[in-house]
Nucleic acid binder design. Sequence first.
DNA 1: CCAGATGATGGTATCGTTAACTTCTGTGAC
DNA 2: GTCACAGAAGTTAACGATACCATCATCTGG
Lengths: 332, 332
Amino acid sequence: MKPVRMREVATRAGVSEMTVSRALRTPDAVAPRTLERVQRAVEELGYVPDLAAGSLSSKRNRFIVALVPLLNSSPFADTLQSLSSELHQEGYQLLMGTTDYSLKREEELIQALLGHRPQAIVVTGRHHGAETRRRLDRAQVPVVEIWDLPDQPIDSAVGYSNFACGVALTEYLHARGRRRIGFAISGMRDDDRGEQRLQGYRETVQRLGLEEVVERVGQPPIRMEYGRQVLRQLQARVPDLDAVICVSDTLAIGVLSEAREQGLDLPSQLAVAGFGDFEVAQHTHPSLTTIRVSGREIGRKTAELLLRRLEGEDQAPHIIDVSFQLIERNST
Amino acid sequence: MKPVRMREVATRAGVSEMTVSRALRTPDAVAPRTLERVQRAVEELGYVPDLAAGSLSSKRNRFIVALVPLLNSSPFADTLQSLSSELHQEGYQLLMGTTDYSLKREEELIQALLGHRPQAIVVTGRHHGAETRRRLDRAQVPVVEIWDLPDQPIDSAVGYSNFACGVALTEYLHARGRRRIGFAISGMRDDDRGEQRLQGYRETVQRLGLEEVVERVGQPPIRMEYGRQVLRQLQARVPDLDAVICVSDTLAIGVLSEAREQGLDLPSQLAVAGFGDFEVAQHTHPSLTTIRVSGREIGRKTAELLLRRLEGEDQAPHIIDVSFQLIERNST
DNA sequence: CCAGATGATGGTATCGTTAACTTCTGTGAC
DNA sequence: GTCACAGAAGTTAACGATACCATCATCTGG
């Protein structure tokens, strides 16, 4: 069976290709009787227009590139899910890529994906290689940086301050009387958002006159497993540790496991805080104090921003702070 | 700044467009000196070939469609992550879509995505609408059904038997002396894989002469929250319930929460089993007995199968059983 | 009843690349 | 010295759609 092209539809409907094209894209511009004939032909032949050909001709496609560190990490997956479904509604297709927290890989991906001539590019984070920036500039396409708020955004951004999160948790624990607060984070420094939270913690303990205790473990993606080890590391350095801030809920869950195994009473002997408010955070034992950020919201706002931009209504760059929320539970 | 086309590169390198094309795709076919000139021109102009134009001309693109119920659910995200990265290595780009467990939505997505003329289509599950099957047939493209093993596969499949999982958990609990085993599952029947597990449970309790106790709650996507309610429902029906099989670890975590709150001693008073072996399953309290299936493995095998198929080495359909594993932990 | 406006349809060029063929160049064998 | 031939580069025509402009029929109003 031969592939069905517009020509076949046109022949069967007894009209020109141009009329078929119009019937499909601007049905109001063709006479009702003709429209019906075309639609029947399309139906009978099971014709699906070739989008590549269409966009080559119209110089406009409906691709949007989105790069995240990982797909299988709930916050980013939430973002992609909502971004993707919002954009789908307007006929856009997301081209996703995962960078594994590597700037080099991000650069390669952008290079490769530019071949599809996307109408917009969404990247995660505020740091990008020099070459990446050059390519993004040259692409002449809207760029949105998500999950953080860059000091010098390339264009638009949708995120929140990870630094402020670190400050908030540290101040909160201090206000609750904790004085020996440790920070647990991944061994590699590739996750800039995590490093920002750490930075917030650092400046705050300094300001409050507390000791800075940072322990690193494993490498991204972080596994719950690591939490067990990192708690022991922290305890080795500060025996009377009374609080741990974890760079993510994932790590915090491991810390809770270890603390339970050690027979520690939480939160009296040790307070634990995480980051992300993963679904499981309210079902741990004790339930986990954490910072809530809505990945879905980031995706939604990004989609909204892009659609406004691409439909030509609002060309200006925007910086959108989706903010965050400290969720107090029983672990602190 | 004008967009850079192959023409510009050709002019700058002092060669024809055809030579540029060759230099980029079959460098061995051009003289070393020429090759170098072209490469320099490409570099200086920052040229990136337009893939849409290329594939229109060559009648071959590198798109592969993949549909899953949800992106932000770890098993599927794992599959997509590995599928995507394996395929990327060979230059393929995944076009992802999420069906929300709706066959109607699956049909719409396939219709829309066929416009990109994908080289292969990956769908989740064994059930598809009649129209969907017709379209897939007509598309004349390899199809892989994943996360289950259809009785009548459209083409290839990579999965395991959800029915067998249900049987395995039920038999296991029975062997451990449990006699009043309940099953907790989502209220909507859209998740066919969950329904299959239930079916496995049903036939097994019948065979063993046990009472069948099924309670439904909420609708997909399942939230941990639901677990609390569903345990109460089960207890209302069978006061001396001694085991619960949950359709997913997500639900099981909620059940564990509720059980703990009721002061039940696990597993002596109640055994709980889940499905999926999510990372958190070994960090719950007590740790969760569950069925492990590797989403990553499904993605990997699917990629492997597709690449063999698309590179023309092996045209035959394959049914690959990635199997599953019962992970015994402290909750049973 | 006809000029001009309006609406519906068709013809042709084009989008940026590659396939298939043609042409050109230089080399080596006889 | 010539001829055959391989390797390198160029020419032309698609690929499947849309943009743009031309054409033709129909309608409207004076």
